[in-house]
Every structure is written in C-alpha cells, then in structure tokens.
Amino acid sequence: MANRFKSDLTWGDVTPENIFLNRRAFMAGASAMAATGIAGPALAAKYSTDEEPNAWEEITQYNNFYEFGTGKSDPAEYASEMTTDPWEVEIGGLVDKPGTYSFKDIMAAMTVEERIYRFRCVEAWSMVIPWNGFELADLLNMAGIQSGAKYVAFETLHRPEEMWGQKRNFVPWPYREGLRLDEAMHPLTFMATGIYGKTIPNQNGAPMRLVVPWKYGFKSIKSIVKITLTDTQPPTSWNMINAPEYGFYSNVNPQVDHPRWSQASERRVGGGLLAKRIPTLMFNGYEKEVASLYEGMDLKKNF
C-alpha cells in the first residue's frame, strides 16, 4: 500500500465516505473477495457499484477486440491463440525507472482488489463487471513519474501471427490509447488482471488491461505491452481512424451524441430480448468522482 494516491487529488475531491459507502456494495464486495480468496482492502468496495454484475458468459462472450475479428463472438473464439505467459511490459518515457517489467514482477508488487464497475461501450450497450486488479497509479508510482510528464500512452501487443485481425489494416496497429496524467492517477482508473476472482480471459485483455469506467469502453485498452509517460498528447487509435467521431477524451456523455447515433440511452447487456433501455448517466455515473478533472472545459468540443 506504499506510494498510493500520489496524485494532486485530495480526499476532499472525493464524495464523503458516509454518503458513498453503500453497505450493500460493501458487503457484496467483501463477500466476493472472501469467496475468491483475494486479499484486498475492504475499503475498495467504496468505488464499486451495488448493481448486479453481468454473468461470466456475458462478459466473456460478447467482446470488441478487433485484433481477433470484428464480430462480437470472434474474440472468444480466437483469442486463445495469444500467448500471455511470459508477458512483459515496457514502461518508459518520463519515468525514473524505465525498463521492461515482467508481468510476474508487476503482480508481486501490486495489491489486488475487486472493483465492480459499470462499463459503457460507445456502441450504446453496457455491462456491470466485477474486475480484479490494481490502481494504475500504483504501477506508475512504481516506475516513478517525472515532473514533466503530462500524459500516459498505452499500446496493445502487436503479434499478427497470433492475432489474425492485425493482418488486416482497418486499424493502424498496434492499438493505442492514452490518458491525461491526472486521469491516469485517479483512484478509479484501474488495471484489471481478473474477472470474478479468476484470471482475466484473453478475449477480455489478458494478462493486463486498462479500465477507465467513466470513459467509453474503447479507451480501456487491452493486453498492454507498453506504457509511456509523455509531455504531449499521444495519438489514440479510434481518433486516428475517425477523428470527427472519436475524441481523445471520449468521456461517457449523454448530451454529446456520436455523429451517427444517440448516446442518450443504452441497452444493458443480458436483459434479454425485451430489456428496457436505460438512460445513460453523465461520466457513466461517476460524475461526483471525476467531474472536477474537466472543470472549465467545453465537453462538446473536447468530446
């Protein structure tokens, strides 16, 4: 737990505990952790939603991971071809200890906890997913953030022989994503290594994928092999593909429509044929926690 929360955010930015700490979520989180034998601070539950998580099958059979094809069931079918052990992550740029870190060494240094987050895809569907993992801030602090760093850039594995989708060029591979440093250091920003207490399946981004619950799903880059701290805004894949439709921020925002479809409401996956559409919440329901990051910004312009 050393080196946690070295961001410029203070606890004053966070919702008061007595309001936010939902007893049901606390109990659910605590019992889930007890059941799966995952040690972690019980307080982690304060970041979790008390909504009912989606089933394992829904979370692992309905994915966007274009490295394995564009169909929703393609990743579950083909992602097993990806080798995830051994796995190395190159951490570089404006850090004190640049280098290649093995996934095993990272895991040995991190404290794994559970976070039940809403997940909202830019395609207007959503899920609730019980992730296991650690705060990205812990990993970045381990590498030592230099004072000039303003952004964090991420890259997915590029290995066309195991990821057949990369043989087609509809995405400029490797898949790239990025966050502003304050977004990356926010306690909600998570590096997931498991789901439901099990090792994260390849189709969900094994062995290590980002989860930024207040942004559209494509920001939560999968199977990360490279993390670079930079002083300039890094290029991001969907923005490179189609800048008018996908901005760098891509915060969930029901008031800012995708040019081709409305973002006002969403379909919660798993509700069956007659599932009711539910209204999409500002910052995917994490407004209290993250709105301050964007104070004074025109979110229609910085979409």
Binding site: E57, E58, Q61, Y62, K72, S73, W125, R267, V269, G270, G272, L273, L274, A275
Partner: peptide
Amino acid sequence: ITLALTGTYDLFGHSLGVDPSR
C-alpha cells in the same frame, strides 16, 4: 418475439447471444 412478449415461451434460448435484439 410474440412468445417472449406474452411471456409464454423462450423460443430463442441462448441462440441469439447476449444482445438478442441487436
């Protein structure tokens, strides 16, 4: 769809995946 709307029978089961209406 009619059977689902009237709640009589689940004809599709899991054959349509987790996002059946889409």
